[in-house]
Design a protein around this nucleic acid. Structure first.
Lengths: 339, 339
DNA sequence: CTGAAAGCGCTTACAG
DNA sequence: CTGAAAGCGCTTACAG
C-alpha cells in the first residue's frame, strides 16, 4: 500500500540511496557500483515494484517534463483535434500534458496560467484569449517557454504557429467572385484578434481588387459571449436585409455551424440562392446536402510544429521568438458552385 | 528571472521560512506571528511576486491536487465533450487535469497509467481499453482512487459511471419495431466490452420479446482497428446482403457517422427504405436530411458525477466501489419514422 | 507564544 | 573508486 521509495530499497539491500539512484537512473555513474551489487539492487527494486516519484525528481531537477495547454474550449472539434495531436506528439517526446480551457474568459485564462506556473510546467501551448496580450507579455518577461497557436499579438513577438489568414481569405472570396457571386457577406467574431481581422482584411481586399463595393452591411460581427439566439438572429438579419447577400463567408467553424442551421430553417437553397465558404472543417460540412467549401487547416502540422517549437525553446533555453506559418488550403465543393 | 522561494522572502524580512509559510498559508498558525510582522511578510511576498511551488508542496503533502484522465481519443466528440465537462468541474473543485489518450491500445494504456502514477496523481478517471481489466485491478489493489466511465468490468467492482445500456437499447429497438420495421440490423464493435454487449443483448431481447427471429446475419461486428474501408464495406455488406435489413441500430457515434456516409453514397432513402437509430449524439445527426433518432447520454451528469465520485474517494479515502447509473434517453426524430 | 529542525523522495558535486 | 551529505522548496510537530 505505502509507496516504495529509494530509501526502502537502500535499506533492504544495505547500501545508500545514492547507490540505488545511480543504478536505477544514471548510466554513467552506475559504473561506480559493483556489477553484482547493481544486479542485486535492480532485483530488489523490481521485486518491491518500485516506481519513482516524479514529483521528487522534478523538485530536484527543476523541470517537470510537463507542458500545459490552454485552449478556448476543448469541446470545439477544432481544439479537440488539435489537442489530440499535441497530446500524441508530446507523449512521443516524453512530455505529459496538462489541459485547461479558458472559455474565452480573461480571468479564467489568468487563473489557468497561474495554476500552470505554480505547477512548474516546462512550457505552455496557448490559444490566447482576446485582449490577453498582457498575460502573454508576462510569460515572455518571466522567460517561460510558450507557443501561441491560432491567435497572436503582433505587439508581443512570440513563438507562434499561425496560418496565412489574409491570403487564404482573399483566395476564398476571390473564388466566390469568380463563381459569379457579387453580394458577398462575411460573418465574423467581434474582437481584437488579429487573426480574425486578417481574415476580414482578406475578404475586403478581394472585393476591392475586383471592383466590388465593400459594404458595412455585408459584414456582421458577432460577440463571443452572445447566446445562440442572438447569433442566429444576426445571421438571419444578414439573410433577410434589403439587397440581401448572394453568398456568405464564415470566419470560423462555430459561426458556420450555427449559420447552416439558420439557412436550413429558412430553406434557402445552397449554392444557387446562397453560396457558402467556411473557415475550418466540421463533419457537418460533409453531410450537408450541398457539401460546404471550406478552408482546411493542417491541424497535424500545426500541432506537431507547436510541440516541436515549444520543446526546442525548453531544451535550448532559446527565447528568441520564432514564427511558423502553416498554409491553409481552400477546399472547393458544392456550396460555392453556382449554376 | 529566477523563481522566488519562501527562503528569499524570509531572508529579506529576516525571519524563518516557517514564519513566512505560516503567514502565507496557514490561517491558524498565522496567529503565532505578530500582526505587523505578518503584514511585512505579506508585503514583501507581493513585491517580490512570490508564486508558491506546487511541486514542493506536493512532495511534502503527498497529494498533488491533480487528476488524470485517460480517454480513448479526445478527438472523438463524445470524449471531447466529456473532457470539457470534467475539466470544468475539476477546476471548480481545485483540481488540475492531466490528459492522456489510449487510442484503444493496451500497451499505450499501461504506459499512460504508469506515467500518471509516477506523477502522483490523486486519482484517475478512465475509459478502460478492451481487455484491460488487469490494469484496473492493479489500480484497485494499489488503492489508487479511480472512476471508470463509459465502460466497466463486472469482475473488478469499481467506482463507475455507466448508463442503462441494456434498457435503452431495448427501448430503441422496440421503437423501431413499433414503427413497423421488422428486419432490424445492428452494427457494433467486436470486443469484450460489457457495455457493448449490454447494448447487443438489449437489441436481441427486444427482437425476441416481439417474436422476431434474431439472425446472426443482422448483427455485424466491426473491429476497432479496422480501417475506414473495412468498416465501410462491412456496413455496405449489411445493406446489400440477401434479405437485407429495413433498419439499423448503431452501437455508437463512430459507427453511425461512418454508416451514414455509406448510406448517403448508396442513396438509400431514410427512413422509408431504411430506419436508423444511433447510440450517442453527433452534430451531423441534426443536419442530415432525415435527422437521426439517437440515444442521448447526459454527458454533463456523467462528467460531474465522475469528478464528484473521484474526489469523494480521494478525500474520504473511501475505497468501497460505488456504481452510478445515469439514464440515457431515446430521442426520436425523422430517421425512424417510417411512413 | 515562537521558530529551528526534520523530512517529503529524489540527485549529484564532492569529500574521503 | 565509493557513498555520505547537501539541497530542491515546501510544511508542521515539537522543543524551547
Amino acid at each position: 500500500m505505502k509507496k516504495i521509495s529509494l530509501k526502502d530499497i537502500a535499506l533492504k539491500v544495505g547500501v545508500s540511496t545514492a547507490a540505488v539512484s545511480y543504478v536505477l537512473n544514471n548510466k554513467e555513474k552506475e559504473l561506480k557500483i559493483g556489477k553484482e551489487l547493481a544486479a542485486k539492487i535492480r532485483e530488489v527494486a523490481k521485486k518491491m515494484n518500485y516506481q519513482p516519484n516524479l514529483i521528487a525528481k522534478s523538485l530536484k531537477s527543476g523541470s517537470t517534463n510537463t507542458i500545459g495547454i490552454i485552449f478556448e474550449d476543448i469541446s470545439n472539434p477544432f481544439f479537440a483535434n488539435l489537442a489530440s495531436i499535441i497530446e500524441k506528439e508530446a507523449h512521443l517526446q516524453g512530455y505529459t500534458v496538462i489541459l485547461g480551457c479558458s472559455y474565452e474568459d480573461l480571468q479564467k485564462s489568468e487563473t489557468l496560467l497561474n495554476t500552470l506556473l505554480t505547477r512548474q510546467v516546462d512550457g505552455i501551448i496557448i490559444t490566447p484569449v482576446d485582449e490577453s496580450s498582457a498575460q502573454i507579455l508576462r510569460l515572455k518577461k518571466m522567460g517561460i517557454p510558450y507557443v501561441l497557436v491560432d491567435r497572436y499579438f503582433s505587439n508581443v513577438p512570440s513563438n507562434s504557429i499561425i496560418i496565412n489568414n489574409y491570403d487564404i481569405s482573399y483566395k476564398a472570396v476571390e473564388h466566390l467572385i469568380k463563381k459569379g457571386y457579387r453580394k458577398i457577406g462575411m460573418i465574423a467574431f467581434n474582437s481584437g484578434f488579429e487573426h480574425m481581422n486578417d481574415r476580414i482584411r482578406g475578404y475586403q481586399q478581394a472585393l476591392k481588387d475586383h471592383k466590388i463595393k465593400v459594404s458595412k452591411r455585408y459584414l456582421s460581427k458577432i460577440n463571443f459571449g452572445d447566446g445562440h439566439e442572438t447569433i442566429e438572429s444576426a445571421i438571419r438579419q444578414m439573410l433577410t436585409q434589403e439587397d440581401k447577400v448572394d453568398s456568405l463567408f464564415f470566419a470560423n467553424n462555430i459561426i458556420g455551424v450555427k449559420a447552416l442551421k439558420v439557412i436550413s430553417e429558412m430553406k434557402i437553397k445552397v449554392p444557387n440562392e446562397l453560396g457558402i465558404i467556411c473557415f475550418d472543417e466540421r463533419d457537418v460540412f460533409d453531410y450537408y446536402y450541398s457539401p460546404l467549401s471550406y478552408i482546411k487547416q493542417d491541424l497535424k502540422q500545426i500541432g506537431q510544429e507547436a510541440v516541436r517549437l515549444l520543446i526546442h525553446s525548453i531544451k535550448e533555453k532559446d527565447v528568441r521568438p520564432s514564427k511558423v506559418v502553416v498554409n491553409a488550403e481552400l477546399v472547393i465543393r458544392k456550396s460555392s458552385a453556382k449554376a
